[in-house]
Nucleic acid binder design. Sequence first.
DNA 1: ACAAATGATACTATGATAGTATCATTAAAA
DNA 2: TTTTAATGATACTATCATAGTATCATTTGT
Lengths: 151, 151
Amino acid sequence: MKLITRNTDYAMRALCYIAQQTKDSVPVTEMVKDLAIPRPFLRKILQTLSGEGMLDSYRGQGGGFSLSLSPSKIFITDLIKIFQNAIQLNECIFKKKMCPNRKTCLMKREMDSIEKDVLLRLSRISIASLISNGNGKRSNRERKEGRYGEA
Amino acid sequence: MKLITRNTDYAMRALCYIAQQTKDSVPVTEMVKDLAIPRPFLRKILQTLSGEGMLDSYRGQGGGFSLSLSPSKIFITDLIKIFQNAIQLNECIFKKKMCPNRKTCLMKREMDSIEKDVLLRLSRISIASLISNGNGKRSNRERKEGRYGEA
DNA sequence: ACAAATGATACTATGATAGTATCATTAAAA
DNA sequence: TTTTAATGATACTATCATAGTATCATTTGT
Ligand code: FES
Ligand code: FES
C-alpha cells in the first residue's frame, strides 16, 4: 500500500534540488552526488520529466536540466500522473457482475471519498512548498520574486 | 497506487455475506455461487481469516464458516493488516542519509498526516456499516428479477 | 578531437499480487 | 461403514508493477 513510488519521490527531490540551484542548468552528475540516487535511474527519471515538459534540457558539455515551470506550479500529483499507474485506491472488483447497486454501494462510496481527499491533499504539495521550509534554502529566483511556496 | 488489494476486498465481501446469512455456518461452495470469487482463492482467504481468529470453522459435511466477532467489530483496517504489507504511504527513502532534518521534513510530515487520515477513515468502515445499506449479497427478490445492479 | 552532457531504447531483477493445485483430515448422512 | 461434503495445510505458478541497468547515438563547449 504505497501512495508514492520511488520514481515519483526521486523526481520530487530532484526537482527540489534543481529549484534550489542558482545555475542555469544542473547536470545529473551533480545531483547524483548530493541526492544519492542511482545514476542511471535518475537519468531515466529526468529524461521522462523532460519529455513531459517539466524540465528543459541542455545537451553537451555544460548542459543539464532546468525547471520549465515555476516551483509553485509543480505538484506531486503531476508527478504521480507521470510515474504511477491509475490513482485508484480500490478497484471496484464487482463491476457489472454482482454489486446490487453501484449507486448505493457503501464500499465504493467510502473509497471514492477517501481517494478524493487524498488527491486533494496531495494536489496541494508543490515543489515550492517543500523547499520553502526546512528542506533547504530558497532559490535566488524565489528570493527575488518574493515568492513563498504555495500555489 | 492501491489502497485495497483483492484479498482484502474479497475478505470484506465474504464477511459481509456471512454476516447476512441466518445459518450457523456458511460453506465456501455457497459463497462462490453468489460472490463470483475464484473458489480456491476464496478458500485460501477464508482459511487465513479463520487462522487469524476472525472466523470460526466447522469441518465435515454441513460445515463452513461463521463470524467469530460481531460485524460491528470487524473493520477494514483489520483485514488490511492481515492481508497487506505495511500500511505506509511513502517510504521515506532518504532516511538517515541526506534529509536535512527529519523533524522538519515537509514531505514526510505531509505524508504522515495523509496516512493518518486515511487510516482513521478506513478504521471506521466495519462489516456492519457495509451491510446496513444496499451492499453485500443480492436479495432473493433481486435474484428472481435477474437484477444485476450496475450503474 | 575530446570530454561532458542528454536522447533513445532495450534489457534485467525483484517483489507483491493474484491466483492454482493437492493431499490430508474431519464429520454428517446414506 | 462407506460416501460425500466440507475445511486444514501447504506448495506451486502466473502476472504485473516497481526498480532498476546497460548501451549506443547525438549534441555541444573547450
Ligand atoms: S462493488 Fe463496485 S460498486 Fe459495489
Ligand atoms: S526524506 Fe525521510 S524525513 Fe525527509
